[in-house]
Design a protein around this nucleic acid. Sequence first.
DNA 1: GAGTGGTCTAGACCACTGT
DNA 2: CAGTGGTCTAGACCACTCC
Lengths: 243, 243
Amino acid sequence: MAIDKSSFVPPYYQLAQILERQIRAGDYRPGEALPSEAELSEKYGLSRMTVRRSLSQLARAGLIRTERGKGTFVSRPELDRAVFVMEEFHKEAAARGLTSSVRLLEARLVPAPEKAAGKLQVPAGTKVLYIRRSLLAGGEPLAYDRKYLRYDRGRPILENELQYQALPEMVEKHAEALPISSKMVLQATVLNDEEARALRVAPGSPAFLLEQVLLAGDGRPVGWGWCLYRGDRYQLTSVSMAI
Amino acid sequence: MAIDKSSFVPPYYQLAQILERQIRAGDYRPGEALPSEAELSEKYGLSRMTVRRSLSQLARAGLIRTERGKGTFVSRPELDRAVFVMEEFHKEAAARGLTSSVRLLEARLVPAPEKAAGKLQVPAGTKVLYIRRSLLAGGEPLAYDRKYLRYDRGRPILENELQYQALPEMVEKHAEALPISSKMVLQATVLNDEEARALRVAPGSPAFLLEQVLLAGDGRPVGWGWCLYRGDRYQLTSVSMAI
DNA sequence: GAGTGGTCTAGACCACTGT
DNA sequence: CAGTGGTCTAGACCACTCC
């Protein structure tokens, strides 16, 4: 096992692959130390910086862990730990080979209800933009989205926009500050009558409840809402860190 | 804004923080180019390698993106994208300040039912280890776990172990191959009578359904099962990439 | 051709853990 | 003390993009 410097695959990546294979094959067991950076550097004819790049890649993937002054050790795999990634709606539908569209059910300025006012940090009763949308994938409803957005500019809302734009762009156009980050909470729930009707399933059906808060660059909340994903059509798959 | 080389914070990290602040403050807008690596190197008195380290940190966090031959650009924030991390049960309970424990409800060798046999890639009827456990947090059931594990060694099962050990260690001791990775699928569901009884909630209550497949280093399945998390006691929170 | 990011090197100094 | 990983440098060559 050596490094092919004429390959298109850069040496740091080749070494990372070699070490990963050795770890997966059990040549180095969990808890065991890998050769030191100096030894790897000497053995594979690479500079220490390049060796370190390979190792940091494996460390990011969770295969190894380094301890200053001691060495580099194979990690015990964290089998009961999982990472789930939820992509943007249209992107995810496209990845699954489904046509996706958004149907605007309602969009108007309303006095903020107490809960929304609290989440948006505005006085209760402040005029905010309320939006209800149905997200369709493959012609069938997949999710039902309700959101409150701060709205201070006085720009007219174009229905056209709301139907085709993702939420971030809507907020960018109509809210007072540009959202720069979002905080989400995912829960399991069962649908009430109204929600079940919107999603064309039976009341009491399971669903994911995704609560979302949009934050401006200064940390102020710009939007808040929930999106319900049909339990029979939506699931999350754990991702494994790639090296 | 300059780099303090006498600080305990390494220069690459200081520069990453400076650039992050500037991006969040809107000094560089989404789509705009950052100064080139050579310019940053000159301006902050750092070598290009060090500048690159700062930039790759910001790129990993999703704030910027590099294009070879063109430059480094501020990313449009992906507000509708979320990453959820599910930690190992005991770790998560501890993080929430709850005592956690595991109650073994059942553990015996059974002929593999058809579905389990398929998932484990063994002939139907092969003797496999079947385990039912209740995961308690703060004295109350939080999750209900059922698993099938390949079992070829013939070692006796100690109840003791099953109650206090996480699944990976159990498998390590009792299955024929060491699991090295796991694949999980997360769904929303409603509980049937048996599951609701185990979790001490009403039938029809919402729950997360976590299906888990444990894989050996060579990719062969070693274990398969589902774990149900009470919807009223468990939720996932999106993590933002830290620089 | 000039400018960009992607990779690599050889050497240096440091802080830390072990003996 | 010798050995480890953590950081930094100055320079080099490359592939790519745009003019």
